[in-house]
Simulated assay, not measured.
Amino acid sequence: MLILVTGGAGFIGSHIVTALAGAGHEVRVLDALLPAAHRTAPEIPAGTDWRHADVRDKEAVTDALRGVDAVCHQAAMVGLGKDFADAPDYVGCNDLGTAVLLAATAAAGVRRLVLASSMVVYGEGRYECLRHGVVRPGPRKVADLDAGGFEPPCPRCGEPLDAGLVDEDAPADPRNVYAATKLAQEHLAAAWARATGGRVAALRYHNVYGPGMPRDTPYAGVASLFRSALSRGEAPRVFEDGGQRRDFVHVRDVAGANLAALDGLDGSPDGGLRAYNVGSGDPHTVGEMAAALAEAYGGPAPVVTGEYRLGDVRHITASSRRLRDESGWKPQVPFTEGMTEFASAPLRAG
């Protein structure tokens, strides 16, 4: 098959391109190389049909879709942004770009789409109160955070909560502009599927890390920030008390999930979107991740600062059972092995 990968020069997209080519697919890449994400020229695998263009460019997208059998849509502006003034940029890149792409695929007769979504559509993770069962706490209060109270309490009785795994049927609760745009992408793709009889797999990535991760850009996740600090001889600075839980999933496993989702579209019903969590299934705290990375790198131990960022969630881990059961996909890179590799892997300048 000929697969178009939007954002195929990016951190995750480039690994997907490599995986697709390794599986015998022809690959075409469309990427705008936005300065916020790319400060150096990307390495494009030999034999890849490379198109330097913005996904919002209707003519370029239409041309890139010629002869294409399926699309892996990775192009997006990610991160929390600096403030709400960034909202138009996020909506333009993510939602307008997706709308242009979907309109062009409808016209071209392309009916198979794998969409890069995110765990952020859920907001906070799954919590259970001993008295009130499953509850959804609201945003944490500044006064509580200032006092070192990082765990969200039960919204009904104020008692402590137990954190659990979110599944794909949990209600969405996006809590920042980026999260809202990712959920809007899913809704747009679902509308496209219903209108055209297309098939969509929306992959809700968890905390992706691995070789080629960018540094010193808004695209850099916490693993990259810690790795960058270690390369400067500095201790990783861990916010809050380090106890916030995440699912750190290796980028090669994410690429494998895209291949599995693409294959799985053959068996999915026409006119529908199916969402899948993509995580390692082995959650760790941010503090544990920082310690493992520092040990593997041989650098200074992490420093827990007690600082916080408004809008951050406390715990977000999820079950990836749906993707495993329906496609046979399983993550292959264990946490310790992945962190050891990442400790010695070069970071991209952007």
Rank of each mutant, 00 (worst) to 15 (best):
R322I: 06
R131I: 15
D54Q: 04
R237I: 10
D54E: 06
M289K: 06
N258G: 08
V110G: 00
G81C: 06
D312A: 04
A46Y: 12
Y308C: 00
G138H: 13
K82P: 08
D86G: 04
R111E: 09
S14A: 09
G267D: 13
P88L: 08
G149T: 14
V114Q: 02
H187G: 14
P331L: 07
G47P: 06
G10Y: 02
S228M: 13
F342T: 00
D216G: 06
M213E: 15
A184S: 14
A189R: 06
R348A: 01
A190I: 06
P283S: 02
G350T: 01
N94K: 07
D83M: 04
G264C: 13
R175I: 15
E341A: 08
E337I: 13
V286I: 11
P174F: 07
L323C: 03
L33G: 04
C93W: 03
G47Y: 11
T98V: 11
D253K: 02
D266N: 07
G158S: 14
H284Y: 13
L80T: 14
V177A: 04
A107D: 15
F248V: 00
Y219Q: 14
L203A: 05
W50Y: 15
A64C: 09
V110P: 02
G47S: 09
A275S: 14
T6S: 09
K58F: 15
G13C: 00
D57P: 04
A193E: 01
G243I: 08
D49F: 10
L2P: 11
S280Q: 03
V5Y: 02
R51K: 13
A260G: 07
D86L: 11
P283C: 12
S327F: 05
G271H: 08
R39M: 07
P171F: 08
C93Q: 10
M77W: 12
G264P: 11
A261Q: 02
R324Q: 13
T98I: 03
R252H: 09
G164L: 14
S228D: 12
T18H: 08
I3W: 01
A9V: 03
A107V: 12
V120D: 03
V249M: 03
R204A: 10
G267H: 05
T317R: 10
